[in-house]
């Protein structure tokens, strides 16, 4: 690991003025620093800041950026009103990692692309302009939607997928003292020709909270994750679904996907294929068609296209069928 300067911040305001990479749980950043994929010159330790509570606000929840994944998944208000979020958190990582990993850090988790991790490989995300060895290489875990000729990496997270379906907003503090509220749908960037820039956060901008609006009344929620082993593995395909049905018609549909793209993927066309229709196979097929119309495989990950279709359709059946 390359050496660095270290400072512990005692307030969010001091943290954003300190000028450095923020570290909280550290489970992703330190892993990457050991491999010299990340080589920050200065770490600003934000782990002691008073941002570790979950408060009720405007009928929803205001989640501190430092709330550990474990605590958020077990919060009775999350279990009662946002079970898709509990399920997504519990589907990710291991017990030890969830005890350390934080809400803000999980949003910023970096890709698990093998070539991003391998400093001898070409990777435009790690070293802009160096190329992308995933394009012609072993790309089984890679993206099928929203890719570019410069990067086909996926966002590896589970929690952000659920938050995307729940219309979460990221609350930040900038070095000049301004606060921003960024809808999660506007938070992540597609790779384009700058895959090393993953979010709209500005230099020194700190995530302080994530706000969840009140859950849609009467909606059922589900998180389904398909992976190579039953536990402690990243998603090949995952779906977070929030669906309400009234009098035989779908009245609300929010569907977000993990494992498919550079960001938690959500497409209004998928939901448009469902709302106003009966929860039947024809509507489910239309939703899958809408999701995958622009999908493109790169060889080893071609299987994700039919897999995503099947995962979506079974999720929709479970969300709209008779309760188990």
């Amino acid at each position: 690991m390359k050496s660095f300067n270290y400072a512990r911040a005692d307030s969010p305001e001091a943290a954003v003025r300190a000028g450095g990479r923020f570290i909280a749980g550290g489970t992703n950043l330190l892993d990457l620093m050991k491999l010299q994929v990340e080589t920050p010159e200065k770490l600003v330790d934000i782990s002691r800041l008073d941002l570790n509570t979950v408060e009720e606000q405007d009928g929803g929840l205001l989640i501190g950026a430092l709330v550990p994944n474990s605590d958020l998944a077990a919060d009775p208000r999350v279990i009662a009103n946002y079970p898709v979020l509990s399920r997504a958190l519990l589907a990710g990582a291991s017990g030890q990692l969830r005890n350390k990993a934080t809400t803000g850090g999980n949003l910023l988790q970096r890709t698990r692309c093998y070539f991003f991790y391998d400093t001898h490989a070409a990777c435009n995300k790690r070293e802009p302009g160096s190329g992308c060895d995933a394009l012609g290489g072993f790309n089984r875990i890679h993206a099928i939607l929203g890719t570019s000729e410069h990067c086909i990496a996926t966002h590896p997270g589970d929690m952000p997928v659920a938050m995307r379906a729940l219309d979460a907003t990221v609350v930040t503090l900038k070095p000049d003292g301004d606060r921003r509220r960024i809808p999660l749908g506007d938070f992540y960037r597609l790779p384009g020709d700058t895959p090393h820039i993953e979010t709209v956060l500005e230099s020194g901008e700190l995530i302080t909270h994530v706000a969840l609006p009140a859950p849609p009344p009467g909606a059922r929620q589900l998180y389904r994750k398909v992976r190579d082993r039953a536990s402690y593995a990243f998603a090949l395909v995952s779906v977070a679904g929030v669906i309400a049905v009234e009098n035989g018609t779908i009245t609300h549909a929010a569907l977000a996907f993990g494992g498919l793209a550079h960001q938690p993927w959500r497409d209004p066309a998928v939901e448009g294929a469902l709302v106003g229709r009966a929860p039947e196979q024809a509507a489910f097929d239309a939703a899958a068609d809408a999701l995958l119309v622009g999908a493109r495989g790169f060889g080893h990950n071609d299987f994700k296209i039919p897999l995503a279709r099947r995962v979506l359709i079974t999720a929709l059946r479970d969300l709209t069928g008779e309760p188990a």
Binding site: Y6, I23, G26, T27, D31, L97, N99
Partner: peptide, 13 residues
């Protein structure tokens, strides 16, 4: 009191 991976955390923290 919480189980963590000691390899993925800086001692100074």
């Amino acid at each position: 009191g919480r189980r963590i991976n000691a390899c993925l955390t800086l001692a100074v923290m």
